[in-house]
Amino acid sequence: MKQITIRLLAFSLLSLPATTAGAAPAPLAPPAAPSPIPAQTASSSPLATSASTATHPTERTPDTAASPTQMPQPTTDNYRFSGTLGPYPIGATLSVRPDQTVANAHYFYVKNLVDIPLSAQNSGEQMTLSEPGGGRFSLHFETSDKDAHGPLTFQTSTALAGTWTNGTKTYPVKLDLASIDHLAPNALYEDVTDAPPAVFEAMVQRFLRSVLSGNKAETAKLVSWPLRVNAEHAFTLKTPAALSTSWSRVFTPCVLNSLRGAIPHEMFVHNGQAMIANGTVWFDAHGARAINSCP
């Protein structure tokens, strides 16, 4: 994996789920500035409404004769970003070929998690991303590495910044690189569950809603028992009754603030589990498996 991937994911990997029974992630600190609670409805975004499904190259078996329409395409890297478009929290994924051209792209508002397709044109350190509704991103690469030498590329940058315009509307945009992978859309959680990505994400979204609304009974239905809680003194909960009794120890103000900024879409996966809020909660196929608590 590229050096930048290791650098960007180091914080998350400090508390990844353990691969053996009994072991568990170490506690994580909360995000510095939590975002507003994500709404979980399918309502349209404040600025755009189009949705899409990303396309991917057609594969062929070694014994199949290649034709012009069947030639294998270069492997793409999915660069996944999170940030803001004006006052709106957003996420974005750009699938990039080895020659630095963008094969597919989309973004979504955290408010509704609906993918909006983007067509891309990039030249040097500059990039234009256009959406069907008329919105246009004018972005450039940035890096937090003071020793980096230009020109910046996807591999050497840590962020995209610029503006989004649509008619008379103009907003500043800042997108920080969160992770890099090679996964197809329908394979996002193949190491976690056999369920389609939308079904798995819907379960995580229900968990968030139930926790943030204080619904103990519904939260318990979305836990993969036993639930490991990593705090100053780690403990394990084995039943819904135990969770109810320990609710305030598990879902501290710090944890709740972290979950308000969680993005339950295109989540990072490691060791057969997916995480939200920089590793605050880890999920397996059946529900929440581990929680990294904070005061």
Rank of each mutant, 00 (worst) to 15 (best):
S138D: 15
F141P: 08
F137W: 12
T20I: 13
T165A: 09
G167D: 02
P197M: 02
Y189W: 01
A51F: 09
L259T: 10
A202V: 03
A24P: 02
V223H: 06
M71V: 15
E232D: 15
G124P: 03
T58A: 10
S130D: 03
L243H: 06
G261S: 12
S45E: 14
T280F: 03
S248V: 10
A10F: 08
P17R: 13
A29R: 14
K169V: 05
N78I: 05
L256S: 10
P17M: 09
A42M: 11
G135M: 03
L8N: 15
A234N: 15
M275Q: 15
A54R: 10
T41A: 09
N278D: 15
P197I: 00
A217T: 04
L212T: 04
P68A: 00
V204E: 08
G150K: 08
Q40T: 12
N166L: 01
H149V: 14
A23P: 04
T41H: 12
G83Q: 04
T156Y: 10
V250Q: 08
Y79G: 06
N122L: 09
L113M: 01
L237E: 07
R228M: 11
D284I: 13
A187R: 11
S95C: 02
R136F: 06
R7E: 14
T19H: 05
S258G: 14
P57F: 02
L129W: 06
E142R: 11
S293E: 13
T84I: 03
P74Y: 07
P132S: 04
N186A: 07
A29Q: 15
M127H: 03
T61C: 08
G287Q: 09
A288C: 08
R97S: 00
P46R: 06
V173Y: 08
H265D: 09
T61I: 05
P38Y: 09
S52F: 15
S35R: 13
G272L: 11
L113P: 01
L208M: 07
M127R: 03
F108Q: 00
F11R: 14
S44I: 13
L222M: 12
S12N: 12
N215S: 08
A161E: 12
S248W: 04
E218S: 07
Y107S: 01
F108V: 05
S45W: 12
G167W: 02
T61Q: 12
N292L: 04
A105H: 00
L8C: 13
T170Q: 09
A277E: 07
A274N: 10
T101K: 06
P72D: 03
F200L: 02
V211K: 01
E59Q: 12
R60A: 04
S15L: 02
A277W: 09
L47F: 14
N271E: 13
P38I: 07
I37S: 11
L9A: 14
T245H: 09
L188Y: 01
I263E: 12
S95I: 00
F200N: 04
S224G: 00
L94T: 05
S82I: 00
V173C: 03
P87I: 02
Y189T: 04
L208I: 01
A161M: 10
L243N: 01
P62M: 05
A54H: 05
G135T: 01
V281D: 11
T64K: 11
A42Q: 13
L243I: 04
S130M: 05
S67L: 15
T153W: 13
L129D: 02
R260V: 03
G167F: 02
T84F: 03
D77M: 12
L177N: 05
Q126R: 05
T76D: 08
